[in-house]
Amino acid sequence: MANPRILIIDDDPDIVEAMRMPLEANDYEVISANCGKEGLQKAREEIPDLIILDVMMETDTEGFHVAYELRSENQDSEYKNCRKIPILMITAISQKKGMSFSPEKDEAFLPVNDFIEKPIQPKDLLKKVAELVVNKE
């Protein structure tokens, strides 16, 4: 079986690198995109096993829009093949403030599967990634 492929959408190359190291060491294949647009394009082309998505990129909420786009219920959506890809959303400390949702209760409101906080703790990252990839399979 091929190694699970993970798409990281984040405009901070250092954060991407910090995640890439532990992921690759654990036999994940890592693809990266440095903006929402590129991220969407790669998601559609590559159909990865997991998407790790940053909230704040060019705008403060770019990550949300990417998530909505990927989970769009629209039949003609270009991303209809991406609907089932799990999303792990990266938030910075105290960034969750004002976003009154949790992945369990408000899935319809914010369609992501889990959150991970910056700074990234490799152990935490690997645990969450493993859970999401396994569940998907």
């Binding site: 901070d12 250092d14 954060i15 690198e17 910090a18 995640m19 190291m21 532990p22 060491a25 910075a92 400390i93 910056k118 700074p119 990234i120 703790q121 490799p122 152990k123």
Partner: peptide, 20 residues
């Protein structure tokens, strides 16, 4: 300040845990 600090911290963690 938050973004670069997060990046530094994340990179340091990866180095510390031997991934580099």
């Amino acid at each position: 300040l938050r973004a670069p600090l997060s990046a530094i911290q994340s990179l340091l963690k990866s180095i510390e845990e031997g991934y580099a």
